[in-house]
Protein backbone atom coordinates (compact mmCIF):
# COMPACT_ATOMS: atom_id res chain seq x y z
CA UNK A 1 0.00 0.00 0.00
CA UNK A 2 1.41 3.43 -0.94
CA UNK A 3 1.53 6.38 1.47
CA UNK A 4 -1.30 8.12 -0.38
CA UNK A 5 -3.40 4.92 -0.32
CA UNK A 6 -2.75 4.68 3.39
CA UNK A 7 -3.78 8.32 3.90
CA UNK A 8 -7.04 7.67 2.05
CA UNK A 9 -7.69 4.49 4.01
CA UNK A 10 -6.95 6.24 7.29
CA UNK A 11 -9.25 9.17 6.43
CA UNK A 12 -11.99 6.76 5.38
CA UNK A 13 -11.75 4.69 8.56
CA UNK A 14 -11.67 7.77 10.79
CA UNK A 15 -14.75 9.17 9.00
CA UNK A 16 -16.55 5.88 9.59
CA UNK A 17 -15.64 6.08 13.28
CA UNK A 18 -16.88 9.66 13.48
CA UNK A 19 -20.18 8.68 11.86
CA UNK A 20 -20.61 5.83 14.29
CA UNK A 21 -19.47 7.49 17.52
CA UNK A 22 -19.62 11.24 16.85
CA UNK A 23 -16.78 13.38 18.27
CA UNK A 24 -16.35 11.20 21.37
CA UNK A 25 -14.34 8.42 19.69
CA UNK A 26 -12.50 6.33 22.25
CA UNK A 27 -8.74 6.06 22.00
CA UNK A 28 -9.07 2.28 21.81
CA UNK A 29 -11.06 2.60 18.55
CA UNK A 30 -8.44 4.88 17.03
CA UNK A 31 -5.74 2.45 18.11
CA UNK A 32 -7.67 -0.41 16.44
CA UNK A 33 -7.76 1.50 13.16
CA UNK A 34 -4.06 2.31 13.32
CA UNK A 35 -3.23 -1.29 14.17
CA UNK A 36 -5.33 -2.66 11.29
CA UNK A 37 -3.72 -0.28 8.83
CA UNK A 38 -0.24 -1.17 10.05
CA UNK A 39 -0.94 -4.82 9.29
CA UNK A 40 -1.69 -3.88 5.68
CA UNK A 41 1.56 -1.92 5.26
CA UNK A 42 4.23 -3.72 3.16
CA UNK A 43 7.96 -3.60 3.70
CA UNK A 44 8.32 -0.67 1.32
CA UNK A 45 6.41 1.51 3.77
CA UNK A 46 8.78 0.99 6.69
CA UNK A 47 9.34 4.71 7.24
CA UNK A 48 5.64 5.40 7.41
CA UNK A 49 5.21 2.37 9.63
CA UNK A 50 7.79 3.71 12.06
CA UNK A 51 6.11 7.13 12.13
CA UNK A 52 2.76 5.56 12.91
CA UNK A 53 4.36 3.37 15.54
CA UNK A 54 5.92 6.46 17.10
CA UNK A 55 2.52 8.17 17.03
CA UNK A 56 0.88 5.19 18.75
CA UNK A 57 3.61 5.19 21.41
CA UNK A 58 3.11 8.92 21.96
CA UNK A 59 -0.63 8.45 22.41
CA UNK A 60 -0.01 5.62 24.86
CA UNK A 61 2.45 7.72 26.87
CA UNK A 62 0.04 10.67 26.98
CA UNK A 63 -2.68 8.32 28.15
CA UNK A 64 -0.51 7.01 30.97
CA UNK A 65 0.51 10.50 32.05
CA UNK A 66 -3.08 11.72 32.11
CA UNK A 67 -4.16 8.60 33.97
CA UNK A 68 -1.51 9.31 36.62
CA UNK A 69 -3.26 12.63 37.31
CA UNK A 70 -6.31 10.60 38.39
CA UNK A 71 -8.82 12.81 36.57
CA UNK A 72 -11.75 10.72 37.72
CA UNK A 73 -10.81 11.16 41.37
CA UNK A 74 -10.35 14.89 40.84
CA UNK A 75 -13.76 15.12 39.21
CA UNK A 76 -15.64 12.88 41.62
CA UNK A 77 -14.12 13.96 44.90
CA UNK A 78 -12.05 17.14 44.86
CA UNK A 79 -14.23 19.30 42.61
CA UNK A 80 -17.52 17.92 43.89
CA UNK A 81 -16.37 18.61 47.44
CA UNK A 82 -15.21 22.14 46.59
CA UNK A 83 -18.54 23.06 44.99
CA UNK A 84 -20.40 21.67 48.00
CA UNK A 85 -18.25 23.74 50.34
CA UNK A 86 -18.92 26.87 48.33
CA UNK A 87 -22.66 26.17 48.29
CA UNK A 88 -22.48 25.79 52.06
CA UNK A 89 -20.78 29.17 52.40
CA UNK A 90 -23.59 30.79 50.44
CA UNK A 91 -26.20 29.08 52.60
CA UNK A 92 -24.48 30.02 55.86
CA UNK A 93 -23.97 33.66 54.95
CA UNK A 94 -27.59 33.92 53.78
CA UNK A 95 -28.82 32.50 57.05
CA UNK A 96 -26.59 34.83 59.07
CA UNK A 97 -27.67 37.82 57.01
CA UNK A 98 -31.33 37.07 57.59
CA UNK A 99 -30.72 36.75 61.32
CA UNK A 100 -28.97 40.14 61.37
CA UNK A 101 -31.86 41.69 59.46
CA UNK A 102 -34.40 40.09 61.79
CA UNK A 103 -32.63 41.84 64.67
CA UNK A 104 -32.62 45.14 62.77
CA UNK A 105 -36.37 44.72 62.19
CA UNK A 106 -36.81 44.25 65.95
CA UNK A 107 -34.97 47.51 66.57
CA UNK A 108 -37.24 49.24 64.04
CA UNK A 109 -40.29 48.03 65.97
CA UNK A 110 -38.88 49.68 69.10
CA UNK A 111 -38.42 53.08 67.44
CA UNK A 112 -41.90 54.52 68.14
CA UNK A 113 -41.45 53.85 71.85
CA UNK A 114 -38.23 55.89 72.04
CA UNK A 115 -37.68 59.67 72.31
CA UNK A 116 -37.65 61.17 68.78
CA UNK A 117 -33.91 61.98 68.71
CA UNK A 118 -33.03 58.47 69.87
CA UNK A 119 -35.50 56.93 67.41
CA UNK A 120 -33.98 58.92 64.58
CA UNK A 121 -30.48 57.76 65.49
CA UNK A 122 -31.71 54.19 65.73
CA UNK A 123 -33.21 54.53 62.25
CA UNK A 124 -29.82 55.57 60.87
CA UNK A 125 -28.20 52.60 62.55
CA UNK A 126 -30.69 50.10 61.13
CA UNK A 127 -30.32 51.65 57.66
CA UNK A 128 -26.58 51.00 57.82
CA UNK A 129 -27.24 47.44 58.96
CA UNK A 130 -29.52 46.83 55.96
CA UNK A 131 -26.94 48.35 53.60
CA UNK A 132 -24.14 46.24 55.05
CA UNK A 133 -26.22 43.08 54.61
CA UNK A 134 -26.02 43.47 50.83
CA UNK A 135 -22.56 41.86 51.06
CA UNK A 136 -24.37 38.52 50.98
CA UNK A 137 -25.70 39.15 47.49
CA UNK A 138 -22.25 40.09 46.15
CA UNK A 139 -20.37 37.23 47.80
CA UNK A 140 -23.07 34.82 46.62
CA UNK A 141 -22.60 35.95 43.01
CA UNK A 142 -18.82 35.72 43.28
CA UNK A 143 -19.02 32.20 44.65
CA UNK A 144 -21.47 31.24 41.89
CA UNK A 145 -18.84 32.32 39.34
CA UNK A 146 -16.23 30.07 40.99
CA UNK A 147 -18.69 27.17 41.07
CA UNK A 148 -19.35 27.72 37.34
CA UNK A 149 -15.60 27.55 36.62
CA UNK A 150 -15.25 24.36 38.64
CA UNK A 151 -18.15 22.77 36.77
CA UNK A 152 -16.49 23.65 33.48
CA UNK A 153 -13.28 21.90 34.60
CA UNK A 154 -15.41 18.99 35.77
CA UNK A 155 -16.97 18.60 32.30
CA UNK A 156 -13.51 18.63 30.67
CA UNK A 157 -12.28 15.98 33.08
CA UNK A 158 -15.36 13.94 32.32
CA UNK A 159 -14.54 14.04 28.59
CA UNK A 160 -10.99 12.88 29.38
CA UNK A 161 -12.23 10.05 31.54
CA UNK A 162 -14.60 8.90 28.78
CA UNK A 163 -11.78 9.01 26.22
CA UNK A 164 -9.79 6.54 28.34
CA UNK A 165 -12.35 3.81 27.89
CA UNK A 166 -15.08 1.88 29.71
CA UNK A 167 -13.06 1.20 32.85
CA UNK A 168 -12.92 4.94 33.59
CA UNK A 169 -16.46 5.87 32.58
CA UNK A 170 -18.74 7.64 35.06
CA UNK A 171 -22.05 9.54 34.69
CA UNK A 172 -21.79 12.58 32.43
CA UNK A 173 -21.15 15.87 34.26
CA UNK A 174 -23.18 19.02 33.68
CA UNK A 175 -22.22 21.12 30.68
CA UNK A 176 -20.84 24.63 31.00
CA UNK A 177 -23.00 27.44 29.64
CA UNK A 178 -22.11 28.05 25.97
CA UNK A 179 -20.94 31.49 24.95
CA UNK A 180 -23.04 33.12 22.25
CA UNK A 181 -21.79 33.66 18.72
CA UNK A 182 -19.69 36.66 17.71
CA UNK A 183 -21.37 39.95 16.82
CA UNK A 184 -23.21 42.45 19.01
CA UNK A 185 -22.90 41.46 22.68
CA UNK A 186 -25.99 39.57 23.75
CA UNK A 187 -27.60 39.74 27.14
CA UNK A 188 -25.88 36.45 27.97
CA UNK A 189 -22.45 37.76 26.91
CA UNK A 190 -22.86 40.80 29.13
CA UNK A 191 -23.60 38.89 32.31
CA UNK A 192 -20.14 38.62 33.87
CA UNK A 193 -21.15 38.99 37.50
CA UNK A 194 -19.45 41.31 39.95
CA UNK A 195 -15.99 42.52 39.02
CA UNK A 196 -13.07 42.22 41.44
CA UNK A 197 -12.86 45.21 43.82
CA UNK A 198 -9.87 46.82 42.07
CA UNK A 199 -11.59 46.53 38.68
CA UNK A 200 -15.19 47.35 39.59
CA UNK A 201 -16.47 50.80 38.69
CA UNK A 202 -17.54 53.10 41.50
CA UNK A 203 -21.01 54.66 41.44
CA UNK A 204 -19.62 58.05 40.38
CA UNK A 205 -17.88 56.40 37.40
CA UNK A 206 -21.15 54.69 36.49
CA UNK A 207 -22.92 58.05 36.77
CA UNK A 208 -20.35 59.76 34.55
CA UNK A 209 -20.59 57.04 31.93
CA UNK A 210 -24.37 56.92 32.15
CA UNK A 211 -24.70 60.66 31.72
CA UNK A 212 -22.22 60.71 28.82
CA UNK A 213 -24.43 58.44 26.71
CA UNK A 214 -26.86 60.40 24.57
Amino acid sequence: MSASDLDRQLALRLEELRKEYGDAVKLERVADVVRALLLSVNHGDVRLYKELESLAAYIQQAKEEIASLQPDELRQEVIASATDELDAIVGATEQATNTIMDMADQLEILRPELPPEVGEKLGEVTTHIYEACSFQDITGQRISKVVGALKHIESKLDALVRAFGPEFERPVASQARPFSAAGAPSDEDLLNGPQLPDKAKKQDEIDALFNSIG
Binding site: E131, F135, P185, L190, P194, Q195, F210
Partner: peptide
Protein backbone atom coordinates in the same frame (compact mmCIF):
# COMPACT_ATOMS: atom_id res chain seq x y z
CA UNK B 1 -23.33 44.11 40.38
CA UNK B 2 -22.63 44.33 36.62
CA UNK B 3 -20.39 47.39 36.42
CA UNK B 4 -18.69 47.09 33.04
CA UNK B 5 -19.07 49.96 30.59
CA UNK B 6 -20.82 47.77 28.01
CA UNK B 7 -23.45 46.86 30.59
CA UNK B 8 -24.26 50.47 31.40
CA UNK B 9 -24.36 51.34 27.69
CA UNK B 10 -26.62 48.37 26.88
CA UNK B 11 -28.99 49.29 29.70
CA UNK B 12 -29.08 52.95 28.69
CA UNK B 13 -29.73 52.03 25.08
CA UNK B 14 -32.58 49.79 26.22
CA UNK B 15 -34.15 52.75 27.99
CA UNK B 16 -33.21 52.38 31.65
CA UNK B 17 -34.05 55.42 33.77
CA UNK B 18 -31.04 55.10 36.06
CA UNK B 19 -28.38 52.59 37.06
CA UNK B 20 -27.14 51.64 40.55
CA UNK B 21 -24.14 49.38 41.06
CA UNK B 22 -24.12 46.97 44.00
CA UNK B 23 -23.20 47.24 46.78
Amino acid sequence: AESKSENVIAAKEAGVSNYIVKP
